[in-house]
Amino acid sequence: MSGKRLPPTETAAGWLFCLPWIIGFLALFVWPFFASAWWSFCQYDMVNPPRWVGGSNYGRLASDLVTQQGFGQALTNTLYYSLLSVPLSVILGVLLAVLLSAPLRGQAIYRTLVFLPSVIPVVAASILWLWLLNPESGMVNYLLSWVGVPPQNWLNQARPAISMETMEMIRQGGMVSSFKLFGSKDALVLMSLWGVGNFVVIYLAAISDIPRSLYEAAEMDGASPGRKLLHVTLPMLSPIIFFNLVMGLIRSVQTFTSIYILSEGTGAPAGSLKLISLELFLSAFSDLEMGYASAMALLLFIGLALATLLLFRTSRYWVHYRMVA
């Protein structure tokens, strides 16, 4: 085939078939991307023509980072959310998949139950979680009370569980009976774990694809179930874990609908639910600072690209691709 040219009519037909996609790609992705990059150096309010302001939008982002206001606060919130929700969803997803792959009675029912939350629309799920996380009558606090955890304030508390402030409070007063550990960002992490079913389905497919012979060989070597999980299942799942890690990271940074509903579009309480996506939206469409929002979007893109690159670079140390003979 190599070097053999297709007849011009077939080449033209090929381009013609690709054309709708190419037009869409150029108009809906390439052009907006470069336009947004250009606007990030401008003051632009969507009505009047963009006005060149050099790097002042980026200067403002840097100053926000230092003061931990606006973009700085949003970045910290996003990092907190992503660094907790992504690894936890991977760990929980793998654990659930391993459990659900065991030959149990009613396996299909359990699998359906785990997957079910993923098909519930985000808006409905967010409203449902508002009820579940109600400090007075919510089911989450009720379940926590079974293990002796005092009622938490969840969405009405800006202070997250992992923070210097919380550490200081624990150091000073210890875990007293009324201690409020979890805040709004922790609630968001909890919500994200609820939709882990999407990942579980992929893990389940991958687990069923692991050759039985590997487990048999491990058993012949006297491997315990734990060792089989550690040395057979996890390495064989690592390409899928890697995929889910990258996708989960991107998805976590793009989280918008749920925080918009939970905080009534403001990022309340005290900006603790203001993730970058919401800050970007408010800057662009509420404060009419499209240039500043574009700068934020570009930084977000670069940050995500770097994080993904880092994951790809480290993947060679922990991702094992199966060699097909």
Binding site: L130, W131, N134, P135, E136, S137, G138, P151, N153, W154, L155, N156, Q157, S178, K180, P269
Partner: peptide, 15 residues
């Protein structure tokens, strides 16, 4: 009343 109690009660309004 305690900030945490107030916050919890306020969120209860939403239920």
């Amino acid at each position: 009343y305690g900030a945490d109690n107030v916050a919890a009660f306020r969120q209860g309004d939403q239920s």
